[in-house]
Write a protein that binds this DNA or RNA. Structure first.
Lengths: 247, 247
DNA sequence: GCAAGTATTCAACGACCGTTGAGGAATAGT
DNA sequence: ACTATTCCTCAACGGTCGTTGAATACTTGC
């Protein structure tokens, strides 16, 4: 397949500077085809700038990729942290519900993917691919999201007294898997359901994910606390009663 | 970075024919770096054969990729279908529990990823990446897994009487997201939990995923049947009682 | 042992890859 | 108006990409 490349060079017609235009184009194209599936020429042509600008502004293709990943993470995490603290404060002197914690974790993401514009939509699709990549996840996800995740897990543990840390970590893993597949918006649920459900209908996900995950967490803890009792029966019963209380 | 490529050409030292060796090497490398992240030369060098063999045996790189994806899907799906039928038969004249259905869906996969050897482990990591890719999922996942998935969803609906199809589809989507992230084995839960949980500990996943997901399904149905009543109250109460029954 | 067919190697093709250095244009400070 | 700085263009580099056609090796059937 031979593709003729015509130079576009729209020469400052737009209002945005080249650096930002590159970030936007890279975000969109990386999200769809991954890091290796897109060349810097693809990106700069889509952005209407010269190839050399990638090296000039970012140092190289790899650094551009991490810059794309970083840009919106820095906007997102403070908001998510604030929402977690707000949920926590509102529940004082008790602890927040699992549903509220999960919502604080997911809502800022789902809301922006749904109504933040195409840039945000691409960004979350990119996060979905990165999160499922053995090559990229240990670097990018850990670096940009783990400090926040640790805070969420700490609050989850407060809301699940008597539940072992292992259950909470596995529950979080299932949550983030469900969430990132949603962001990928591959359209698979659309065809499976013959159009009854739409990948892009993130409001439906927002309604359902928190109840689903919260019930999952409770089931994990109930299972761990009923099987293999390592404590005397009386202590175990007290713990179960506490963690089984709903709402 | 300049990498010197030395020819290996181990010339039929192994027992496997070149076609199979290419499939094995491609599986391992595609799983880690994706379709575009690996060249056919990377693959053929790892397999110890000549570059031209890819075109000869498969027609091209793209066809090799789909062949890798197809090979184990064809082994997997009949077994999963048989397990679903077995679970269904064992529950007659009733319907199987959600836990048993989810296990029939996940166990053949988790078991092979855990103890099927490195080939299977790579394969599921590849599936994880494909499932989260807007470029590949609509083609490969739909083509090779959707017929099976439709059967599972049909049985899930039997086990969730009075629950709308939408809830079941969303519940399935969350399940498959949690499952595929598990297969990716990115090691993120390892660092998050300071080594308390291990990505590779699929037995732990097997114990927990079914209870988690089953509880999630029940929560979705309960939510749908309690909020926004479109039916008269009496009918609604009857449905809720049915779908809320546990175990 | 010979022929037919299959499997594999070899060398090379044009296209595209990421990156770079030299230089031009725009901008800001004085 | 001059200068320094930043932003951007142009042309080209060495390398790697996927693919191919011709030639060689191996296997099978007789």
């Amino acid at each position: 397949m031979v593709v003729v490349r015509r130079k576009i060079t729209r020469k400052r017609t737009g209002t945005k500077p080249g650096k930002e235009r590159i970030l936007d184009a890279a975000e969109r194209l990386f999200a769809r085809h991954g890091f290796y599936g897109i060349s810097v020429r693809d990106i700069t042509e889509a952005a209407g700038v010269d190839v050399a600008l990638v090296s000039y502004h970012f140092g190289g293709k790899r650094e551009l990729f991490t810059a794309v990943f970083q840009r919106r993470a820095e906007l997102l995490n403070p908001e998510r942290l604030a929402m977690l603290e707000e949920v926590r404060r509102a529940a004082l002197p008790g602890v927040p519900t699992l549903e509220d914690i999960v919502n604080a974790f997911t809502y800022p993401l789902l809301e922006r993917s749904a109504r933040g514009g195409p840039g945000w939509k691409s960004y979350f699709a990119l996060v979905a691919q990165v999160n499922n990549s053995p090559e990229w996840a240990p670097v990018l996800m850990t670096q940009h999201f783990d400090p926040l995740v640790e805070k969420f897990i700490a609050v989850l543990r407060e809301a699940l007294p008597g539940c072992s840390a292992r259950e909470v970590y596995w529950g979080y893993q299932f949550l983030t898997g469900a969430l990132t597949l949603t962001f990928a918006e591959t359209g698979r649920i659309d065809t499976l359901s013959s159009g009854l459900c739409k990948s892009s209908d993130l409001d439906s996900v927002h309604e359902r994910l928190a109840p689903y995950v919260a019930a999952g967490f409770r089931a994990l803890c109930a299972r761990a606390n009923s099987a293999e009792p390592a404590l005397p029966k009386s202590a175990r019963a007290a713990i179960s009663a506490k963690s089984a209380k709903r709402r």
